[in-house]
Design a protein around this nucleic acid. Sequence first.
DNA 1: CGAGGCGTTGACACCCATCAACATGGGTGG
DNA 2: CCACCCATGTTGATGGGTGTCAACGCCTCG
Lengths: 249, 249
Amino acid sequence: MSTPDLIRKLNGFFPVGDTLQGDLDALTREQVLLAPGESLIHAGDPLTNIYIVDEGWMLRSRHLPGGGRQIVGIALPGDFLCFSSLMFETSDFDLTAKTQAAVSRLQIDSFRSLMHLHPGLAEALVWSTAHEESLLAERIVSLGRRDATERLAHILCEIVARLQLIDRHDGEVLSLPLIQEDFADILGISVIHIVRTFKRLAMLGAVEYRTRKLALLDVAKLHRIAGFDGEYLHFSQRRDVRPIHHKPD
Amino acid sequence: MSTPDLIRKLNGFFPVGDTLQGDLDALTREQVLLAPGESLIHAGDPLTNIYIVDEGWMLRSRHLPGGGRQIVGIALPGDFLCFSSLMFETSDFDLTAKTQAAVSRLQIDSFRSLMHLHPGLAEALVWSTAHEESLLAERIVSLGRRDATERLAHILCEIVARLQLIDRHDGEVLSLPLIQEDFADILGISVIHIVRTFKRLAMLGAVEYRTRKLALLDVAKLHRIAGFDGEYLHFSQRRDVRPIHHKPD
DNA sequence: CGAGGCGTTGACACCCATCAACATGGGTGG
DNA sequence: CCACCCATGTTGATGGGTGTCAACGCCTCG
């Protein structure tokens, strides 16, 4: 089985040759199926695998002593998970399926040797890592310096853009598995204030949210509210990547 | 010239063999000297290099339309900068020297081929990337779910731990180049509230701050206030890393 | 038809931002 | 050595954004 979403995502960024396609297909993989709410890994668990999301939404979160939760990342089909298994022994976060999900499990040791045999795989991982790092940094900007309305608009812009990249964007009304409590824990805001904030976005004519359905009324307006500049996603940029095993001139 | 801080840092994590040491020495490097306040790169600039900080503190920040600033990372001696140059064409952030600083500039193309010739270099980069990713994720938890006092205590714990790792921790009173405005922009809090928060930490008997000097009165108490668990730094863990070019049994 | 998940509303309190003014202190030039 | 100045830190008053609590409404699913 190939990894159509990963390929599609990388292809949006730089031309994916047959080599990389082959590399990814060559992975010996075990697929894990998860029910909604089921966890792939818990904070403190040993890290022994890398994963690629094949289908579904996964959330990376931390549970705090006081009972709170902070979601630090959303993983969509085509995303790598637990890349830090390459270096660290335990996980700092929970990894939980938000929908029914399917992920490919890759033993870290075999992944290492596969990376050596298939340099394109290393490229894919590096791209994915750089990309995720961008998302984290941008989230920090949001949490640090944007108010609730801007934050919510911003994450919605980001989600829409990411879904478009993997062709999961189904038009005017978007199905997404996140409930308002999830948005609260992504944005560092209380659930009740998320309600108010969605209402404000609706009154502004940008979007309307109702239980896992998001109606996109005016995406341009949403971008304006968020101060969204998709540059940090680096979707439109293509660097002419030479596989690592090619010597430069 | 070697990279003592990078080596020291990696060594705290896994045993650094002669191979990696040699790899790092083999880098053909151009050193850049920066005055305090001087920028190495601005948001929007093309990314054509990777850097290693040899000396000084660097801040990675974003300036917002409204005039605000969010600092997303602190780079200390031994840290890589702009690793995303491997994949992206432009920078999303400013990189500014907070002290006098010296960084080694490495052309991205020669860095790529060096990574191939010296697998240990790739290991070092991956470790550094994973490490930075951990810091970003933990910062998101702070900004999302900790109040001002916890946030400030937490970043202070993190800074102390990072300085210890590179032997820059000079005892009871710590010199650090950050002013209160910097803390404000790291933590997403106003300067004025940082003042009050430092005062609270002083009244609690944890630390006292006065113009680039931090007196550590009771580090254990500071940890307790922050809810600090250094696990995310992964300093005490050592994974037995096999260089990528070794086949697993 | 009942129950539970999810969303909504209003009242109230608190954390933190904003503004304006003032204090301190180290460095620089005369 | 003094005077000044600029960076940095400090204080108080006030207001707004957001959290908390409690109660209720709606929809879905079994």
